[in-house]
């Protein structure tokens, strides 16, 4: 979610609540017998407010699980999650009087800090990375489909090479053509390559292209992992081939460009969603421990 002008009401409300809480804290700090602590009435008020904000922020997960629930717009929930979640940290610091003296309260303070900081990191990543993704990954696909798409690109590349090397009937096919694109390529297979050129292309395919297509992220040293090097690599192939196969070679080159973009997309995706591996588990743990802390603290 981009943090833009539409967040202004939430930002104003958050800053206003924080200012009121800070102003109320001043006389509380100066005059309350024994000083600020979580078990005083003002401290309990801060605690209930802060835990309420945490709960609201946590309910975003439930809201996402049941998108058909018509309890407010998803956008409102997301903005509330961002701003109230961030606000819960200072409010709960006021609740605790800026101290964490017990083991459970210390764990809660650490969890809350990590959760809020990871959330802020996530919000910044969500703000910048989608735009970056649009700029550098023109051939973006559904993230979960990337392994499947890679299999199809591998087949398509094999079909193109098959079509270029298919004249001798006794030459084995380099790939089985199960995908529509690969079948289409295999059926349209004119080739003016000499036997030497075919053998050369097959060698290049097996030793250069296949390893990269099989494990694009594990072959960083391959010339095909860089657009400039790949371009030079394919230019050299074109120079050794008749013009009639140049278009097929350009198709092959475009397959490798798509592979490279999938690498970038995967990296950006991991960056965009990886922080959730910290944020979500710790948030749930925080809510559970926070509930236990509230129960025990109120009881005693």
């Amino acid at each position: 979610m981009r943090i833009d002008q539409s967040h202004r009401p939430w930002a104003v409300a958050t800053v206003s609540i924080l200012l009121v809480a800070l102003l109320a804290y001043i006389p509380y700090q100066l005059f309350y017998p024994g000083g600020p602590a979580g078990n005083t009435w003002p401290g309990l008020c801060y605690g209930v407010l802060g835990y309420g904000m945490m709960l609201f922020a946590g309910l975003l997960g439930a809201r996402k699980r049941v998108p058909l629930w018509r309890i407010g717009r998803a956008q409102v929930w997301m903005r509330g999650h961002l701003w109230l979640g961030a606000l819960s940290l200072p409010i709960l610091l006021l609740h605790a009087g800026f101290r964490a003296r017990g083991p459970l309260t210390l764990v809660l303070a650490i969890l809350l800090t990590v959760v809020v900081l990871s959330g802020i990191t996530g919000a910044l990543l969500q703000h910048f990375i989608p735009k970056r993704m649009t700029q550098v990954v023109h051939l973006e696909t559904i993230y979960e489909q990337i392994p499947h798409v890679r299999e199809m690109l591998f087949e398509e590349a094999g079909a193109i090479v098959d079509s270029l090397c298919a004249v001798p009937a006794n030459l084995p096919a380099v790939a089985s053509h199960s995908t529509p694109a690969a079948v289409a390529v295999a059926e349209d297979s004119p080739s003016d390559l000499t036997e030497v050129q075919r053998a050369n292309l097959l060698h290049v395919y097996r030793s250069g292209m296949v390893p990269f297509l099989r494990d694009p992220e594990g072959n960083r040293s391959s010339p095909l992992s860089s657009r400039a090097k790949a371009s030079a690599w394919f230019d050299a192939l074109r120079r050794q081939s008749p013009p009639s196969v140049h278009e097929a070679l350009s198709d092959l080159e475009s397959i490798f460009e798509e592979e490279r973009q999938l690498i970038i997309q995967r990296k950006l995706y991991l960056l965009l969603h990886g922080w959730l591996l910290v944020h979500v588990p710790l948030s749930v743990t925080l809510l559970v421990l926070g509930g236990i802390h509230a129960f025990v603290a109120i009881h005693y």
Partner: peptide, 13 residues
């Protein structure tokens, strides 16, 4: 035949 990314192509993937 040049590779063309059509909606149909992408959908079939």
């Amino acid at each position: 035949m040049a590779r063309i990314r059509t909606t149909k192509n992408l959908g079939q993937r």
